[in-house]
Design a protein around this nucleic acid. Structure first.
Lengths: 111, 111
DNA sequence: TTAACTATCTAAACAGATTATATACCCGTT
DNA sequence: AACGGGTATATAATCTGTTTAGATAGTTAA
């Protein structure tokens, strides 16, 4: 905590939406995708994504349905809504601008 | 807000330390520096920086002293400590790595 | 039968940021 | 002299997203 644990903070929803924009998925798979892409420095807790899902469903960014569950454990799938796509586009644009500015502020102007 | 308000979140201390690594400064000036560099999308609240200062002083990242106050209102100056410089170096390295990874996760891999 | 992995979920606590408020000094305009 | 705007610091209460810590349960391989 307070270490490097909160790198994802504020970006969880955006990343979930990016993943869902490429196709429906479920919690465990999404968390794996994030961790795999995180190159060892990102560690999403399951509680984080499930609370994010709940929030996002309430906000109309995604809808959910149960998978048919043949074989393994039951899976709850998530599907991005048009509002979710819109929200993602906004967040993506914000990230592009914000990351450039943050870089300037963190690294320093004179280089 | 949950809008674009928390862009700075997690980076406030790092940015303060970067500014102080270039010379002692005080709260109001630091907040101006951040807002000016923020190109209209970053808005640091005074409460944010003053609580950060308090936290950082407790953590030994900076020390503080009162300015002589000739002229305007009294100013409390902040000076970065060796521990603060160390912490900044770590956070800088973390940002460089994390921003690249976040970019990949937010923008998407296949472009 | 045990361990490891897959899979979902919630309550409580925590950290960092925001909102709101307070204080106070300086300067220029009306 | 009064007022607004800028400079300057500070704190209590609240909010939000994440983490901690727990619970449940099915599958697969040793």
């Amino acid at each position: 905590m307070a270490h490097g644990g909160d790198i994802l903070r504020g970006h969880t929803e955006t990343i979930i939406l990016r993943i869902l924009s490429e196709g429906d998925s479920y919690g465990y798979e999404i968390s794996k995708t994030i961790i795999d892409g995180g190159e060892g420095i990102i560690d999403v807790k399951d509680a984080t994504i499930y609370t994010a899902f709940k929030r996002m469903e309430e906000d109309g960014l995604l809808t959910t349905y149960w998978g048919d569950g043949v074989g393994g454990a039951r899976r709850r799938y998530y599907k991005i809504t048009p509002k979710g796509r819109e929200f993602y586009a906004e967040k993506l644009a914000e990230w592009k601008k914000a990351s450039r500015i943050l870089d300037k502020l963190i690294v320093g102007g004179d280089k």
